[in-house]
Design a protein around this nucleic acid. Structure first.
Ligand SMILES: NC(=O)c1ccc[n+]([C@@H]2O[C@H](COP(=O)([O-])OP(=O)(O)OC[C@H]3O[C@@H](n4cnc5c(N)ncnc54)[C@H](O)[C@@H]3O)[C@@H](O)[C@H]2O)c1
Ligand SMILES: NC(=O)c1ccc[n+]([C@@H]2O[C@H](COP(=O)([O-])OP(=O)(O)OC[C@H]3O[C@@H](n4cnc5c(N)ncnc54)[C@H](O)[C@@H]3O)[C@@H](O)[C@H]2O)c1
Lengths: 209, 209
DNA sequence: TCCACATTGTGAAAGAATTCACAATGTGGT
DNA sequence: ACCACATTGTGAATTCTTTCACAATGTGGA
């Protein structure tokens, strides 16, 4: 049990949590690795292998306790209540700020930052839009560990420079730029455009046959 | 050159296109596989291997023509002008509908569908919000190949049933549900929540050391 | 025209992830 | 208390992906 944990395992863990949440809502008490196949596109032995990196959570002959495993996985993934800020009060920034579902992953959006005079000082729901100039100080005083970046892609590097200067640990990146950052900062990119291009490729292939 | 193309290659192809667009804007004429390392997190030989699945596009000793390669890759990925509809005129649906950048990937959003009486009949920018009841007919008459689904996760299966009934080929899925569809339909999921949970894990790890 | 050089394209090697297959073990019915 | 059964946890086998390393080849300067 002293192996390094594969990247792909980390990608799947949150999906397992989602499935367990869903089953829990449906009052399901036990789940087997085979049952997961209905809810997620992975083979049962991959689930068992993934879990084995972290411990033994199952009961042989029976499966896994839904609430028990959910709690374990939440602990493993560090789902302990996080706060963040959003940079860019545009289309995506507003959509995220208005989103109610972040409660489920215990995420609180503290503030949104922008450089547009017309937006600064306003509120999105109950969340204030603040001046980007005050971001560094805010991040430090409020101990923000990671940010969500939703500014135009052309501005990405500019914002990243400011973030490198602060002691942020992570960036969720909605821009289509590759961010060059020191390795103490973890970048996770959500790239809608490239996902849609993948779809184009599959459409083309399906037309061909 | 008759091998099957790895999934991971398909994930990277759109990223190469993005880099080439960026270089092209900067009037760069030639690019080597090594140059890509500045803009994307992959090793040069992977780029060469990826491209080799589709043909030979480089000039030995020189590199790749930026505009030439861009055009080739756009052709390979089927970037030929697509139309789509968005299902759900909520936070994400509106953000996508308002997004100008889809021009770059030659994507046109034809219409948005919703079941909320207050939204049906209105416009988002120049794009009409139509009644979900008319979706199937619309998809067929307008020959829509894929849809973008941005309804509440609890409604996902309901909408999927209607889509299976139509002759849609693909779904870009923003809900957190795993969609069970016949294999003629390609599902590509963009799961913001699970990406953020991955970030939590890395934050936890970085706190530990 | 020739040659030193740079970089591609690609088999072969190395490394990583998935799947198999089964011993280990708890379950639940009798 | 026992046993037939189900399912876990995990080494070993397999498959998939990345990286290496170099022959092939076009470039550009002398
Ligand atoms: N909206 C989408 O559906 C969508 C789809 C794919 C990709 N994206 C990407 O997401 C990012 C955001 O897209 P969007 O549509 O929300 O953009 P947007 O233009 O609607 O919003 C950008 C916001 O950033 C603010 N901003 C600009 N410069 C700033 C600065 N220096 N400091 C702080 N704030 C600044 C602007 O005032 C604006 O409020 C872009 O990189 C885009 O490519 C968006
Ligand atoms: N907004 C975000 O930042 C965000 C983040 C992560 C995940 N998501 C996911 O994206 C999806 C959409 O989120 P959102 O925030 O845009 O939701 P939302 O509630 O703002 O919008 C959903 C829209 O769907 C419409 N709708 C409801 N039932 C419908 C039906 N039967 N047919 C047609 N339309 C129907 C609603 O009227 C509403 O306009 C959800 O699954 C959510 O979990 C959103």
């Amino acid at each position: 049990m002293k192996m390094t944990i594969p990247e792909s395992t980390i990608h799947r863990m949150p999906q397992y949590i989602k499935v367990l949440e869903y089953l829990d809502e449906g009052k399901v008490l036990f789940v087997t690795s085979r049952d997961f196949e209905t809810h997620i596109d992975v083979n049962p032995s991959i689930i068992r292998k993934d879990l084995s990196y972290f411990g033994e959570f199952g009961v042989r002959g029976k499966g896994y306790s839904v609430t028990g495993l959910k709690q374990e996985l939440e602990k493993i993934m560090g789902l302990t209540g996080h706060r963040t800020i959003i940079i860019g009060a545009g289309n995506i920034g507003k959509a995220l700020t208005n989103y109610k579902g972040f409660d489920n992953i215990k995420l609180k959006i503290n503030a949104v930052f922008d450089n547009d005079e017309r937006k600064i000082g306003s509120m999105i729901n109950t969340i204030p839009v603040l001046d980007i100039k005050t971001m560094k100080a805010y991040v430090e005083s409020e101990n923000i560990e990671f940010v969500i970046m939703a500014v135009p892609s052309s501005i990405a590097d500019l914002v990243v420079d400011q973030l490198i200067d602060s002691d942020i640990k992570g960036i969720i990146n909605f821009t289509s730029k590759f961010l060059s950052v020191p390795k103490r900062i973890k970048v996770i990119s959500i790239n809608i455009d490239t996902k849609i291009m993948e779809m184009f490729y599959f459409l083309k292939k399906s037309r061909m046959k």
